[in-house]
Amino acid sequence: MTLIPDVALAENTSQRLPCVVVLDGSSSMAQDNAIGALNDGLKLLEADLKADDVARQRVRILVLRVGAPQDVEVVTDWIDAIEFEAPEIEANGTTPLGAGVRRALDEIETEKARYRDHGIPYNRPWLFVLTDGEPTDPDWEAAADECRQAEESGRVSVFCVGVGEANLAKLGRFSPRQPLALKGLAFREFFLWLSRSARAGSKSAPSENIQMAAPSDWAVVPGRAG
C-alpha cells in the first residue's frame, strides 16, 4: 500500500505512567517459596514490558521492599521500563507496610514534579501493594488513611493484593478499591496483567476511576465465587 511520502513524525517525549510496587519482603514470604514465585513474576514483568514498543517507553517503575534490615528499601529506583532489570527480593523481617506506602506516596509526588519541570505528560500514577500478612508498624492506620485519601483525591490509583493468608480487611483500609486475593502464587499472571494494562490507551474522565481488564486469571475477589 502506498504511504504518503516524506511525512516526518514529531519527536516527543513519550507520556509516562509512574508505577510503584511495594513488595512484602518479610520472613513469611519464604514459606512455600512464595518469594521465588514473586521474583519469577518480576522477571516476567521485565520481559513483557520490554517487548512492547509503547509500554517500554511509557512505564516508569519504582520497586520498594518492606522488611529487614531496613524497614523500607528502594530495590529499584525510578527507571524507564526499557532499562528495568528485575530485582531479587529477599524474605527477611516483619511487614512495615505503613512506612512503605508513605514512602511510595512521597516518591510519586516527587516524580510528578520532575515531569512537570520537564514538560513531560503523565498518566495518573499506579501504586501496587503486595503482602502475605498484615502491616506490623504501629502507625500503619494513619498511613492507610493517607493512602486512601490520595486515591480519593485523584493523586494515585491504589491496588492492594493479598497473598495466601494475608489480612484482606486491613489491606482494604489502604484503598477504596477492594483488595484482591492472589490465586495461589500466580505472580506471573499478576505481573503480566499489570504489563498489559499499562499499554492500554483508553481514557477516562478526570472524576472517574481507571478501568482495567478483569484480573480473572490471577485474582479471587473476596466474597464472590471463583
Binding site: 516524506d6 513524525l9 516527543n12
Partner: peptide, 25 residues
C-alpha cells in the same frame, strides 16, 4: 484525534514536517 496529535504535535505546536507533506499529497 489524540492518536494523531501524538504524531503531529511537537509539544504545544504543530510539527509542520508532518502536516505539510500530507496536505501536499
Amino acid at each position: 484525534s489524540d492518536g494523531v496529535t501524538e504524531l503531529g504535535l511537537q509539544g504545544a505546536e504543530p510539527h509542520m514536517p508532518f502536516f505539510e507533506p500530507i496536505g501536499r499529497f
